[in-house]
Nucleic acid binder design. Structure first.
Length: 280
DNA sequence: CCCGATTCCTGTAGGC
DNA sequence: TGCCTACAGGAATCGG
């Protein structure tokens, strides 16, 4: 009965960062002519007053915190999350909207920022105060590419934790931006079993894992993120990280290090891919 | 506090 | 051809 696993375009940190870099030049310094909302039913409904709130205001910066994009205006901040199937495109001039194109931000130079999200797990929120104090952002862990995320931090953060290390890597109180793809890949590169109790990582393993996370995320950003099915960046181009994946979605294929078959198992309602021989 | 299960949603693909 | 169903997963929330 079970259909074959379906590849999905899941925006993790590299995809969100790629999107940020793609949209920032088109948005920064531009004034909003209007916000067009076609479907308010995202993960949290888009506030009915947002169109009026945002109209006429100018984008000062486009930033990223974890997997949230922050469009910082002179008057407040739009907090955008791509959920599991969201993407943002910059359109030089607006084309007719297609299915799942839930909102457009129309700018004063004719450009449109268009949000597309078939599964509507994403969000568009607004805050007038410091976005870092917003309930969704206030308790987030350090950025994985920051100096604060180092071997010592991860070692301390995992002490006495019994949960599997892969589960904790996907916990935004430990580190942000790491989802199922990059958790699997980083653990493979650090030669650590995804099922190892986090509290039992050695200092050396913590260091190796931090390095692996930084490397895998940095490399993915460098080549534009991972396109599994239909993720595209702001210009509509795919990312090329998929070919760099060692284990994710490669169940049964040969481990690139030892040649053993890559294993797959459901762990915490998510598919985990790993090498039984290399990862301990 | 910690941790695992549940929930939201829809496109896709396999089986019949 | 078309119906049915499992599966994909970020992250909030709930229950133990």
């Amino acid at each position: 009965m079970a259909g074959r696993p379906v590849s999905k375009a899941v925006p993790e940190l590299p995809e969100v960062e790629t999107t940020r870099r793609g949209i920032a030049p088109a948005l920064t310094g531009r004034r909003v002519e209007r916000l067009i909302v076609r479907d308010r039913r995202l993960r949290w409904p888009i506030e009915p007053g947002l169109e009026a709130e945002i109209r006429g205001h100018t984008v000062r910066h486009v930033e990223r915190r974890a997997k949230y994009l922050l469009l910082r205006f002179d008057s407040g901040t739009a907090i955008v999350h791509l959920g599991m199937s969201g993407s943002l495109r910059v359109l030089g001039s607006p084309t007719p909207a297609s299915a799942h194109d839930h909102w457009d931000l129309r700018l004063d130079n004719g450009v449109a920022l268009r949000y597309h999200d078939p599964r509507r797990f994403g969000s568009l929120l607004w805050t007038r105060s410091d976005p870092d104090l917003h309930p969704l952002l206030a308790r987030l862990a350090p950025e994985p590419l920051s100096r604060a995320f180092d071997a010592d931090y991860l070692f301390r953060a995992t002490r006495r934790r019994k949960a599997a290390i892969k589960t904790l890597l996907m916990n935004s109180r430990i580190v942000v931006g790491v989802g199922n793809i990059y958790a699997s890949e980083a653990l493979f590169r650090a030669a650590i079993s995804p099922f190892r109790a986090a509290g039992r990582l050695s200092r050396a393993q913590s260091a190796a894992l931090v390095e692996a996370i930084k490397t895998v995320l940095g490399e993915a950003i460098r080549i534009g993120g991972t396109t599994l099915r239909d993720y595209v960046n702001a210009a509509g181009a795919p990312g090329y990280f998929r070919q760099e994946l060692c284990v994710y979605e490669r169940g049964g294929e040969a481990c690139p290090v030892c040649g053993a078959a890559v294993a797959k198992r459901v762990q915490g309602q998510r598919s985990t891919y790993w090498c039984r021989v290399c990862q301990r």
